[in-house]
Computed example of a mutant assay.
Amino acid sequence: MGTLDLPHASSFKGGSETFLRDVLESILKTYLRKNPMAKTVWELVQSMDNEKISYDHFFFRTFKVDGYGIESLSSFFMDYGYKIGGRLEFPKNKVQLVWLSPPDIHVSGDGHGLGNGPLPRLVIAELLVDELSLESQEIIRKYLKPEGGKQAILSSTLGSLIWEKPTSAEFNQLVKESEYAAWALIHGYTLNHLAVAVHRRKHRFSDINYVQEYFQENGFKLNKVGGDILNESEDGLLLQVTLASEKVAIEFADGVTEPITASFIEFVQRLVLPQFKDVPIDEIKEFHRREGLEQANANRIMQSTLSQHKNETN
């Protein structure tokens, strides 16, 4: 696997917290515009008890080629105080990722949403293009010209591809080897998914089991990649439920329109760490809870846009 050598940042170097929040808000709005089902769920959760969503993390997919990889996005966020929290590798999928913890920003007890609430963690994955077949490499490199990754943040906020759209034949050829590659080539830097922080909610949707039951009872399709709807970390302190990805109509460069798997929405509950079990519930902060990602959970989540698993839902 490749190695990740990224700079570290401990504080804002320039700009303002307001600008950072505006960028994240634009990324969110683009995601909601492009994913009708996720928007429906997002609006539903927001309307529950008139409580705005707090985000656990935003997840992006990138290519490790010609400056389009993890650093194309992480460099911007690290300039605004994000720090590397950890790394995971997935040799079978030829993917590696880092997750970034948000800057130390004071948030009042009633802070909410992206406007004045806690900032989300960021998870940025990259596909190790050099480990793909020559045929797949040629397709990807045909579109990803050197230096284009410098526009990653602009691409993510606007929801526009930096490169030209591929043909349907090229897309379907990539699908045969790497669903990740095909998805990223047609969707670019659009959020792959966002995760709602269940543990930060005060009313309904404040428990992951309720989340699962509610969506099942109301006819939503929940992801069952790996066989389980509720994904639980080995230590039992990180719980995740994922709604199945929808499909949206995409027109390719050759004029062919096909339904393509889009983004999805996830719910995450981080339980209190054992050493803090005696801390009063109204005094619990994020640092009292389980941090980071789980290898097995993350691997299952990364399978959530696999079109062949679309029918493995409940």
Rank of each mutant, 00 (worst) to 15 (best):
T190N: 06
H193L: 11
G255H: 10
E232I: 04
V211Q: 05
I281L: 13
D49H: 00
K150F: 07
Y214R: 11
K247V: 08
I27F: 02
L154W: 14
V107S: 01
D254C: 14
S263P: 05
Q96C: 10
V256Y: 11
V95C: 11
E164P: 07
R200V: 02
D66T: 08
H187T: 14
E138S: 14
G255S: 13
A38H: 00
I140H: 07
S304F: 03
G69N: 10
P91Y: 14
A182M: 08
Y31T: 02
Y214E: 12
L273Y: 09
E291L: 07
S263F: 04
I229H: 02
Y55Q: 05
D254M: 08
S133I: 02
K277M: 06
N192A: 10
F77G: 07
Q308C: 05
K202I: 13
K247P: 01
H106T: 09
R141T: 11
P166Q: 09
A182H: 11
K34T: 04
S108Q: 12
N218C: 08
K34E: 04
F60G: 08
R204W: 07
T157E: 09
R204V: 04
A253E: 15
V95T: 15
V95E: 15
R204G: 03
E286N: 01
P118D: 00
V272P: 03
